[in-house]
Amino acid sequence: MFSGMNPDLEAPIYKGLNRYVNDGVQLMAAFEGAIAATAQPLRITTCGLLKAGKSSLLNALTDHIETELFATGATRTTVQNQTLSHQNFVFVDTPGLDATEEDDKEAWNALSTADVLLFVHDPGVGELDQAEINFLSELAGQPGAQQGLEERLVVILTRLDSNEEVIDAIAQKVQNQIKNCLGIEPRLFQISFTSYQKGKLEGKQKLVEYSRIPLLQQHIFENLARLHYQFEVLRQGRIDESCKQLINKIDLEISNRTEKIIFHGKEFDRAYEALTKDADKLISTLRTKFAAYNETY
Rank of each mutant, 00 (worst) to 15 (best):
M1Y: 03
F2S: 11
S3W: 12
G4Q: 06
M5I: 12
L9K: 08
P12R: 07
P12C: 03
L17P: 08
L17E: 10
R19E: 06
Y20D: 02
V21Y: 13
G24A: 10
V25K: 15
Q26A: 13
L27S: 11
A29C: 06
A29F: 03
F31N: 05
G33V: 12
A37E: 15
T38V: 11
Q40L: 13
G48A: 03
K51E: 15
K51M: 15
G53R: 15
N59H: 12
T67E: 12
E68S: 11
L69P: 00
G73H: 10
G73V: 10
T78S: 03
V79C: 04
Q80M: 03
L84Q: 12
H86R: 05
N88T: 00
N88S: 10
T94H: 01
G96S: 02
D98A: 15
T100S: 14
E101V: 12
E102L: 13
E102N: 04
D104K: 08
E106T: 14
A107W: 04
A107P: 06
N109D: 02
A110V: 11
S112Q: 11
D115H: 08
L118E: 07
V120M: 06
H121C: 02
P123H: 02
V125W: 13
Q130E: 14
Q130A: 12
A131N: 14
A131S: 13
N134H: 12
F135C: 06
E138F: 02
L139R: 08
L139Q: 07
G141L: 10
P143S: 08
P143I: 14
G144R: 09
G144W: 11
Q146H: 10
L149E: 14
E150T: 05
V155N: 00
V155W: 02
I156T: 10
R159C: 05
D161H: 01
D161P: 03
N163F: 06
I167Y: 04
A169M: 06
A171K: 14
K173H: 11
N176W: 04
I178F: 04
N180H: 09
C181L: 07
P186A: 07
P186M: 08
F189W: 09
Q190I: 09
Q190D: 02
F193S: 12
Y196T: 01
L201T: 09
L201F: 04
L201K: 14
G203Y: 12
Q205I: 00
L207K: 11
L215Y: 02
L216F: 09
Q217E: 14
Q218P: 00
H219Y: 15
H219F: 14
I220R: 01
E222Y: 11
L227G: 08
L227T: 04
F231H: 11
E232A: 09
R235H: 06
E241R: 13
I247R: 15
N248D: 07
N248A: 07
D251T: 14
L252D: 07
E253W: 04
E253K: 13
S255D: 14
N256R: 13
R257I: 00
T258E: 12
K260G: 03
K260S: 10
I261W: 13
K266N: 11
D269G: 00
A271N: 03
A274L: 03
L275E: 15
T276H: 05
T276E: 09
D278K: 15
A279Y: 14
K281L: 06
L282D: 04
T285E: 10
T288M: 09
K289C: 01
K289R: 09
A291Q: 07
A292D: 15
N294L: 13
Y297G: 10
